[in-house]
Every structure is written in C-alpha cells, then in structure tokens.
Nucleic acid binder design. Structure first.
Length: 436
RNA sequence: GGUUCCGUGGUGUAGUGGUUAUCACGUCUGCCUGUCACGCAGAAGAUCGCCGGUCCGAACCCGGUCGGAACCGCCA
C-alpha cells in the first residue's frame, strides 16, 4: 500500500491508511498521546490510548518535533477533533528520520526569529505554512503566465546567461574568465529576445535568471533574480506592448485569486488585488504635476520618479481609478537606454508599470531601424563597435517590436505585501548573502 | 557607494559602571482521564561577536576589528 497525502484522507474513513509526515506537535497526557502529522501544508491528528499500546507509547515518548514518521493505521471520523474532524489510530509507527530536539528557529511563529536568522535556516523557515502557501501561489502564477503566452502563440526561449558583453551598458555585471576570454553573467535577455524578433519568431517569452552585480542594499533588490521577459513583433506603438502586458497581468492575478484567494485571505489576511478596472496610464510630467498639487511633494529627480513619488502616484491611482497597477508613460530619453524608440518629440516610447507603490516593469517599443539605432548608441556615449553583434541583428530586416521585463520576486512580494524581497525569493542572493 | 543603527542562553529580548545578567517561547524531568495555542510544578542552558584601552571594578564608557540590518542612490 502506498502512502496517502493528508489532504486526500477524507475518502478513507474506517479504512486502513499509510501516512507520512513531519511531527508537527505532540501532546502527551496521562492516558493518551496526540501527535499532529504534517505533509506540505496539511495536517492530521494521530491518537494513541496509552493502555495496551506500550510499544507505540514508547516510540512517541522519544519523538522530537519535526522528525519524520510513517504511520500505518485506521482513519476514524471524529467530530470532536478540531483538526479536520478526523483522527488516525496507528498500529505501526516507523521513525524515518530524527530531528534535533531543539530547533534553531521557531517555524510556527515567524516573528519569533529575525529574518536573517530564518534565512540562515531557510530549509526550516520554508516549513512555515505561510511560506509553503506562498510558493504554491508562485507556481500558480508562473503557470498562468505561461499558459496565457502558450494560448496566444508565443514561443518560449532560453537565452545564454554567459555573455561576451553587458546587455545594458553602465549597469554592473559579474565578470568571469571564460577560457581566457572576458565574459560576464547576463543581466537581461534583452538583446537575445530582440534577436528572436529579427529571427521572425514574432512573439517570445523567457522566464530565467538574470544577474546584477550592483551593491544595492534595499528591501527590493537581489543580485540574482528570476526575470520574466516578453517581446512581440509587428506592433504599431508601445501601446500594443502595454495592452499585452495588461491582459496578461489580469489573467495571472485572476487565476491566483480564483485558485488561492481564500487561503491567502486566511493566512495572509489579504485580498488579492482586484484587476477588473483598466490600468490607468499617466504621463510622467502629469504624474509629477499631480504629486505636487495633491501631495505637495517635489522630488529632486527631474526625469524619473523617486521612491516617494512611486508610492504617491500609486496611492492616487488607487483612489481615483481603483487600480493597484498604474502605467507611467512618456519618459525623457535621457533616463532610458539607447534601444528605446523615440517619438516625434524625442521622448522614449516606453513605460514603467508600478504596482502597490513599487516599479515592477520597464517596457518599450524598441528602435529597429539600424541607422537611427546607431545614432542613439553614439548619443549615449557608447562605442558602436562594442555592440556590433547586436546592431547586425537589424541589418537584414527586422519587424517593429517591443516588450517588457520584470522581476518575479518583486511582483510576488507586492502581491502578498511582504516587506522584503528576501522572503519572497526561494533562496535569496544579495551582496551580503551567498549562503545557503 | 552614501547616511544611520545593531551584535546578550536554541530563538526573540530586558539590562546607561558594582545584578545570582531579566522575561517570554523552546528544551529536559515530574505531574495531569481526549488534548487541540493543553495545563501545572521544577530544572538545565549565556566565555554578553572578537581584540585592546580607561577604571578598584566593564554586557554597559573609549578605540579598533569582524559580522549584520534599515533608509537613500542604482534597477526588475
């Protein structure tokens, strides 16, 4: 007989079952012992009457919390048991692994240990039910993202992470020795997804790692991130990119709410954002004007939003348009990379998507006309020779195209209103965190 | 990279020059007729990050060092 998942046990009342799990808690009373078993996020109570069960009592008396056991026994329906109204009466208990009697961190109450201590013992921290649910939800989100793209004719690509040069010059890269040649870790699949446009793939996406050697000490930066990138051809303007991202975003947000909304409400005391309204689009200059008039705040930054402005404009969008998402459009070319297309007024045809007060995406129409592209490279002070391989992509015909990229953990942390990306990443990498 | 702050039992903390180094959770032992945040009693557990200095005396003051965090900047 195979082991059963605890969540499927209801089908087996009055039958013999085998269940495996972690020892979640033990309550040892005078005449009876209760052991709560946990697999994944689901729990079941095992009950042992002491009289006549000396062997089992002996095993349970020596159990430590978080050890793993395999239990064979009969499942009874017991309304008096608060945990799912059932209990398991064991005949055999096999200890399959033994845990330390004293755990390094308290996994039941996350607040009982500092974040850094919990990250040191991430394998234990992840046993916490909130963390378990979080990564189930991330799986649902990733699945919904992919499904939307599969259903809309996108090709999934996997681009190299070892590259000869940086994808966006100026940003810090991790350098490495590549058989005597200089190489670096990819910061973004930007150039290669554009290459796929020149290759006639029309619509592509990639979900994969990106590496940033920036010594950023904030709650929303990491040195290794999971990037979600998409690029589409035959567009008329950057609006087509925004429309695609909006429809795609609504799809995964709705799916998350549909599948896990109730559990999220219960464990995180949180409502998944409603996305039934259109995402508002506000031009950068208007955003600054609104922030000044409504919140009496003026930033030192002229061609970008600072952190406070991001929060304020999101607050405004929430109040006025009932949306947690807001597009900021019409950016000065000075604050954007060379590969963004300029409009007739010289603005970059790009946008940022903000979500609950934080930037989660930059998207744009790309400059696919090789002569203009070369001019923009020079305008940004880059030697075109360094980007020759990239410029060549556009010499043999290339569709008008655009796309976006975003950091998975940053979006997940915003959905769940987790205040630090370290907790929204399975195994975090940052300037001072290389282990585990 | 800039600014600010923090290192005390397993965990989280109290502690502004002399304390038996506080409290909670956890751990261990005993008790407790079914618990479900079980309860009750007791016990063990800390070279106060490290090195040096001041002082009769340092967890506490000073210097250095190591480790870490928050915010800002850079971005996703």
């Amino acid at each position: 007989m195979k082991s059963n998942c605890i969540k499927d046990l209801k089908k087996y009342f009055d039958k013999d079952v085998i269940v495996q799990g972690f020892v979640d808690s033990i309550r040892d009373l005078q005449y009876v012992q209760f052991v709560i078993l946990r697999d994944g996020n689901d729990k079941v109570q095992m009950t042992i009457e002491k009289e006549g069960n000396e062997k089992l009592v002996e095993i349970v008396s020596n159990l430590t919390l978080e050890s793993t056991i395999k239990v064979t026994g009969k499942l009874l329906e017991s309304p008096k048991v608060k945990l799912n109204g059932m209990e398991l009466i064991p005949t055999i208990i096999e200890v399959t692994s033994t845990s330390l009697s004293e755990l390094p961190i308290d996994i039941k109450k996350m607040d009982n240990a500092l974040r850094e201590t919990r990250l040191d013992y991430r394998f234990l921290d992840l046993r916490n039910e909130k963390n378990n649910l979080f990564f189930k939800c991330q799986t649902t989100v990733l699945n919904a993202m992919r499904n939307y793209w599969y259903e809309n004719g996108f090709i999934e690509i996997n681009t190299p992470k070892i590259c000869a040069q940086a994808a966006e010059s100026g940003a810090e890269v991790f350098k490495l020795d590549y058989f005597g040649q200089k190489a670096c870790l990819s910061q973004s699949p930007q150039f290669y997804k554009q290459m796929c446009m020149a290759s006639g793939f029309s619509k592509v996406f990639e979900i994969g790692p990106a590496f940033r050697a920036e010594n950023s000490h904030t709650s929303y930066h990491a040195t290794e991130i999971e990037m979600v990138d998409a690029e589409i051809s035959w567009i008329d303007s950057v609006d087509d990119v925004m429309a695609m991202q909006e429809a795609w975003t609504k799809n995964y947000m709705n799916k998350l709410k549909e599948v896990h909304g109730e559990e999220i409400k219960k464990l995180f005391n949180l409502e998944v954002s409603d996305v039934s309204n259109s995402f508002p689009k506000i031009e950068l200059a208007s955003a600054k004007q609104i922030i000044k008039e409504k919140y009496n705040y003026v930033s030192d930054k002229v061609d970008d939003l600072d952190r406070k402005e991001e929060e304020l404009i999101c607050k405004y969008a929430k109040e006025k348009y009932k949306s947690d998402f807001v597009f900021i459009t019409k950016w000065p070319f000075s604050s954007r990379p060379f590969y963004h297309m300029k409009d007739s007024e010289g603005y970059s045809m790009s946008y940022d998507l903000l979500f609950k007060g934080l930037e989660i995406t930059t998207g744009a129409q790309r400059e696919h006309r090789v002569d203009i592209l070369e001019k923009q490279i020079i305008e940004k002070g880059i030697d075109p020779k360094e980007l020759q391989f990239y410029i060549d992509f556009f010499k043999c015909g290339c569709p008008p195209h655009g796309g976006f990229g975003f950091g998975l953990s940053r979006v997940m942390m915003q959905i769940f209103e987790i205040d630090n990306i370290r907790e929204a990443t399975l195994i975090y990498r940052g300037p001072t965190r290389l282990n585990p």
